[in-house]
Nucleic acid binder design. Structure first.
Lengths: 335, 335
DNA sequence: ATTAAAAATTAACGCGCGTAAAGAAAAATC
DNA sequence: GATTTTTCTTTACGCGCGTTAATTTTTAAT
């Protein structure tokens, strides 16, 4: 920067000021800098910049696993929302490992992030580390809630969305059984189970819950193996299954195909399968999956908006905010 | 670090040495530092560390789009291979935007990456920027090749893999048509088309190529729309279609389902569909997709190994290396 | 106990930039 | 033209650490 300032004929502090905000220097000097920029293609070291800044423009975005298309989709929207507001998002995936969530927060500490948007693991998260981070940085949670952590949470209203699906399934055929992981890592899974039970009781139906054994992130495989087991044992008392999320449903769909079960609502179909989340692949399954779409756009925008509001007012929220958006029923052919 | 060194009773340079390599200090001082670490939970700022190091342990990994499960899968393996070798991978996705590929390389410049593994866009990449980067950093390309860029390339032997598939399809039924994007961004697509044509001619068959209109990364949607169009127009002269990649095949499978075409090789099936890449979802499609598995593991390990070899010898390769691994035929039910 | 080798300490500089203060220069106002 | 305001320049320090060189201390070897 020293050298670049010399060749452009401007002092280094002014050049520094320019890179911080090009509009903050006189138009004539701005032109000289930009002319020199054309010729010598210099660009400042972003990490050295943030080393010493009071407030950076870096926003940390941490998700549990980018290999899950659900998270890559919502992360993409969050990133775009940040960029639109003039901030630089830094996307970090924890690759399914809670210890890496901690590492990622440490990185964001080093980077002096202005604020962080975190989709935590939930039960598996190292909550002490997150709490410590929360104390020092503006933190907004999304997707998965954790009590008393973060100044705000933005997510989907699982009881509304599951009720919507249960209502639809009851109205259009036999009431649904519920298929989920036995040891879900994500707190939404618990909310959905509870919502299913309550909704079924409201409809005067008996809830039936089926839990898949298995650990890890290989949900489709678990859905196929365990779902296939329940199907072949004829374990479901009704012909309708609501899966806790689309990835399980995709696996179950695959199992049903393998067993020769026709899936759908038409005549000649043996079973109806529904999911939750509107996973990017759900529209391409055979048959296309009936599911609940989370309002990715609204969740991303609200999470980002809430964080930026905090950044601008420069004070912590007096009270923790929780915002839940409604899910939308996506009727396709599987149920 | 100053403070931490004070409370641990060790000088700062020694503490610095410890963090650089815990084994490089005397066991007794190591114990004292680690005891202090327990109590005061300090951790060095990774970005400040790299600011001034001769050789960092940072390896940049740049992929065009992490939202594509193919890339998230191979990136995962590359990351693990780096970690196993004691380096810190920094994974950057260009989100489908070639200009962001350039930005990502600039970030890695700032970070003083010891070396970079890059899966370039190919035709759309800003090759001047990559060349400039290549001149200053050890660079290994994987997945997609670009002539004269990078000191090495590691990928799949498309002519072998496509030939393997064509041979299988010809042997087990009618010879395949080829379905691809009209304007593929990835150089592998062109290699596969050429390989298909040559292989068909070797088998004494006439090649038939069908190209899908459409831009962007929404391959499944394009595969469904355009594949569905060809199917419903009865455009394919044989009952077998080889898709240039699995994502197109997944879309086409969905179209076939919608049109009531039974896919597979058994009696009563109308069409066979095959793909290429063994996409993580391919085993869950209905029917499961017959495809070519790239040897992710070998590609990742060789790419990482080649780069680390360069890092240790501290000199550029005298000649550009190209390593191609063979694809493996994965026979499932779709063809 | 003596000596050589290994490890730690002290002191100082550098990385690439942000930032603050004081003064000089340029632009805007009258 | 004189005055005020804005913008630059100069100078200097700091961020959090790596790294070096000279010196001292500790450990291992004789």
């Amino acid at each position: 920067m020293e050298e670049f300032a010399a060749v452009s004929g401007i002092s280094r502090p002014t050049v520094s000021k320019y890179f911080n905000d090009p509009g903050s220097v006189r138009p004539s000097t701005r032109k000289r800098i930009e002319a020199a920029l054309e010729e010598y293609d210099y660009s400042p070291n972003v990490f050295a910049m943030n080393q010493n800044r009071r407030k950076t423009k870096n926003i940390g975005v941490v998700v549990p696993n980018l290999a899950d298309p659900f998270f890559s989709e919502i992360a993409r929207r969050v990133e775009l929302a940040c960029i639109d507001s003039g901030y630089s998002p830094i996307l970090l995936s924890s690759h399914g490992r809670p210890d890496m969530e901690k590492t990622n927060l440490a990185s964001l500490r080093s980077l002096k992030a202005a604020g962080v948007l975190l989709a935590p693991f939930g039960r598996l998260s190292e909550s002490e580390a997150i709490k410590a981070f929360d104390a020092d940085f503006p933190l907004v949670l999304f997707d998965a809630n954790m009590s008393d952590i973060g100044q705000a949470f933005v997510g989907t209203n699982n009881s509304q969305s599951v009720d919507l699906m249960v209502e639809y399934l009851c109205r259009s055929g036999e009431p649904p059984c519920f298929f989920e992981m036995k040891y879900p890592t994500n707190p939404n899974a618990n909310k959905r189970r509870t919502a299913y039970i309550e909704s079924m009781e409201r409809h005067g139906q008996k809830p039936h819950i089926f839990q898949a054994d298995g650990e890890g992130w290989n949900f489709e495989e678990i859905g196929r193996y365990e779902g296939g087991r329940f199907l072949s044992e004829n374990a479901f008392p009704t012909n309708t299954v609501l899966c806790s999320n689309d990835r399980l449903a995709i696996g179950m769909l695959s199992a049903a195909y393998g067993l020769g079960f026709r899936v759908g609502q038409g005549a000649g179909c043996h079973i109806r399968i529904a999911g939750h989340d509107d996973h990017p692949f759900s529209r391409f399954t055979c048959p296309p999956l009936t599911t609940i779409a989370q309002d990715y756009e609204a969740i991303a925008n609200r999470a980002v908006g809430t964080l930026f509001g905090m950044l601008e007012s420069e004070e912590r929220l007096t009270q923790r905010q929780e915002t839940l958006f409604e899910g939308r029923l996506i009727m396709r052919d599987s149920a």
